[in-house]
């Protein structure tokens, strides 16, 4: 399978990228590592008229210590997030999840920003971002900047609150140094998308992100609230699928996904508690 024809340009700065994206109009798409977009293009499920390749904007590939948070450039590759010492120290959940995305080849090319901006409910990193309470920095036409909380970012199936012409530039992750954490990824083959995944951080309060439990990456709010209200792990986990409409596919029915979510949330909370510094 091969993509439909398209135009291609490769800006050398974020400013230039914004300009090219603006000129390209609605059918223009950003290309980072390409590991979310190119597979869709090969299947002809996406056919952008213009690809703006920002893959080598090294200015967007970094991990920085910003006091109470880590600032991670959107074009930082999964492999680099996985092995970064700052991430390992202050957001070990994120390092671990980055190491669970796809397979090694995917992790050598795919980027954290590309994965989040794609907004795939089956993707691992959005759930981690939700659990960690991350914020996304965005620049728009003319260099306008805004911050979007992870909880406000995912709007619909493969839809985010990124407006046309905007670029996700940075992921800001509050430090969770010493926090308990767990990532439970349930799949049938190691390389597959999660059938259900659960990312959890316990650091006084608890953040839980769910993979593949709806049309968008989700936060397990019912569980978080139950815990905040004093429920036991066991009791809280029973609410993991409350109000959710998980998808049906070859691997799982909605009913089974709901069951898995309850089991995996419980396991995640147990593991996070056991890891709690």
């Amino acid at each position: 399978m091969i993509p439909a024809p398209f135009e291609y340009c490769r800006p050398t700065s974020v400013e230039e990228a914004l300009g090219m994206l603006g000129e390209g109009g609605e059918d223009a798409k950003l290309l980072a590592g390409g590991h979310s977009l190119l597979p869709l293009m090969k299947l002809r499920l996406a056919a952008p008229s213009l690809l703006v390749d920002i893959g080598r904007l090294r200015e967007l590939s970094y991990v920085r210590d910003a006091g109470d948070a880590l600032r991670i450039g959107a074009l930082t590759r999964h492999r680099d997030v996985e092995t970064d010492p700052l991430v390992a120290e202050h957001a070990p959940l994120l390092a671990h999840v980055a190491g669970q995305v796809g397979d090694p080849q995917v992790r050598h090319r795919g980027t954290i920003g590309g994965s989040i901006a794609h907004g795939d409910p089956a993707s691992d990193l959005p759930a981690a971002a939700l659990a960690l309470g991350a914020t996304f920095e965005v620049v728009g036409p003319g260099g306008s900047k805004r911050s979007i909380a992870a909880g406000d970012f995912f709007q619909g199936f493969l839809e985010t609150s990124l407006a046309p012409g905007e670029i996700l530039t940075e992921i800001v992750v509050p430090k969770a140094t010493g926090a308990g954490w767990s990532f439970q990824k349930f799949n049938r083959r190691a390389q597959d998308w999660a059938i259900v995944g659960v990312a959890a951080v316990r650091n006084g309060s608890t953040g839980i992100g769910l993979v593949n439990m709806g049309s968008v990456p989700l936060r397990a709010t019912a569980v978080e609230e139950a815990l905040a209200g004093g429920a036991s792990v066991e009791e809280a986990a029973a609410h993991a699928a409350d109000g959710l409409a998980p998808p049906a596919d070859l691997n799982a029915s909605p009913e089974y996904r709901a069951h898995l979510a309850r089991v995996l949330v419980r396991r995640a909370l147990e593991e996070a508690s056991s890891r709690h510094g």
Binding site: Y8, R10, D53
Partner: peptide
């Protein structure tokens, strides 16, 4: 890298 998931231009 999986060379089927990368453009030559990349």
């Amino acid at each position: 890298v999986k060379s089927c998931t990368m453009l030559a231009l990349q």
